[in-house]
Design a protein around this nucleic acid. Structure first.
Lengths: 238, 238
DNA sequence: CGATGACCCTTGGAGCCCCAACTTTGCGGC
DNA sequence: GCCGCAAAGTTGGGGCTCCAAGGGTCATCG
């Protein structure tokens, strides 16, 4: 609005508006850096920064050598967007930085991928994958239950030090490019009631997360968080 | 790890590690751009970009004229961080861009701030505020129920076109600097069951969101989302 | 007709610079 | 001992440039 605020914001707001009101449909190309500098009469830095901001918001995606395109979301009802840091260390790190201790149990086992898992990991059903259970505890009470599935070839060795999924994939020459998460609340299963020590009537937040390397899924996990116990809090710097 | 990947990532990862393992406690200063270039032997651009990435992740916060500092989260259990776009248009825009129609009802009324609201908006109890109800409908079924509270002086006029909160505040000379959200799941209240047409036994996701302008809250809202109906989906570009 | 390669464009990393606005610090004077 | 002011340091906006890696297109050659 005001002519005083950053010029890159003018570009961001104009493109965002076009995406929001449907002038730019999913898949449509965004003008390149060079074109933006001409169109909006701004420097290359401002044009570049505008594209970076829009990409960080998840509205557009950049493809090297090709251009930026309006992003299409895989699900019909994306309500809002969020962000986990890493898997699973950061959760613990968050708490630790506040002087609280967090511990976790985990164990791996080979298992057969059912039809649902096969769909999520794009495998044939009855292929063997590795299932790893994690239980996070903060001062005794379980806070989070996670079950991770990976194709056998990527599974962590028993002796291997605990390393993040992204770091482990890296040693296989695989670069994780995207994380897709889908969230819903639901009634807990009996084993979850047991593992999380849930009182009667409490629902859970269920996150289904998949790590992608290009167009290939390399890990998928179910994260279950008790509805009564957690309290997500996020301050977003504007 | 590998010496081939971007140098700014070396800086990001090293600082992130220090924050995660507690070497850098909340409030601790991060080296300045000039110091980072010397310490990591990188250019100014890389140092600057590293700080921007860490700030975007919410791990650090920059204060003009002073420096960057490790951010402390207001709540003891931040499980993950997320991000809404705007209020409330983007949700509708997301759906519209996929060719689905979304409508909303809304109405405003003056009301007295109870003790809870007074705490959230930092007002005296019994001050009058404006309460605005929003109901979002996607193809008939209600998808989201929001109740927003603002001090009277900021309330939108009846004639005023629908504009985002951030834009409205701007005309009052107020710049929204931060959005704080706290989320939990809970049993719906009777009026919510009614408004959202909830089947028996379905829980809701309750988001308490506050817009801040500096150290002053300018709006607070309760957003209620049916646990069975929604499906958050977010792909995070890495 | 089909394959191959050259050429142009685009992204993303990286470097360096200038400047306004703001904070912090320390010095000098009262 | 305290106040005020100037100098130094810091962020954040903006500009310009170079380059590697990769996508697209089109013409040329077999």
């Amino acid at each position: 609005m005001a002519t005083s605020d950053p010029v890159y914001l003018r570009v961001v707001e104009d493109i965002r508006r076009q995406i929001n009101d449907g002038s730019l449909l999913p898949g449509a190309p965004i003008p390149s850096r060079a074109q933006l500098t001409r169109k909006y009469q701004v420097g290359e830095t401002a044009a570049r920064h505008a594209l970076r901001v829009l990409a960080a918001e998840g509205l557009i995606i950049g493809r090297v050598g090709s251009g930026h395109y309006v992003r299409q979301h895989p699900d019909p009802t994306p309500l809002h967007r969020w962000r986990f840091l890493d898997h699973p260390a950061p959760f613990a790190a968050d708490l630790q930085s506040q002087g609280r201790r967090v511990t976790w149990d985990w164990h791996s086992e080979p298992t057969e991928a059912g039809p649902d898992l096969a769909r999520r990991l794009r495998l044939d059903p009855s292929t063997t994958v590795t299932r790893t259970h994690y239980v996070f505890r903060g001062e005794g009470k379980p806070l989070q239950l996670a079950t991770s599935y990976e194709p056998l070839e990527f599974a962590p060795h028993a002796e291997e030090e605990r390393r993040s999924l992204v770091a482990r994939m890296y040693t296989h020459g695989i670069k994780v490019t995207e994380i897709v998460e889908s969230v819903r609340t639901r009634v807990p299963r009996p084993d979850e009631i047991d593992a999380l020590d849930l009182p009667a009537g409490v629902h859970v937040l269920h996150v289904e997360r998949t790590h992608w390397a290009g167009d290939r899924p390399v890990e998928t996990s179910d994260i279950v968080i008790p509805g009564d116990r957690f309290r997500v809090m996020y301050s977003m710097p504007l």
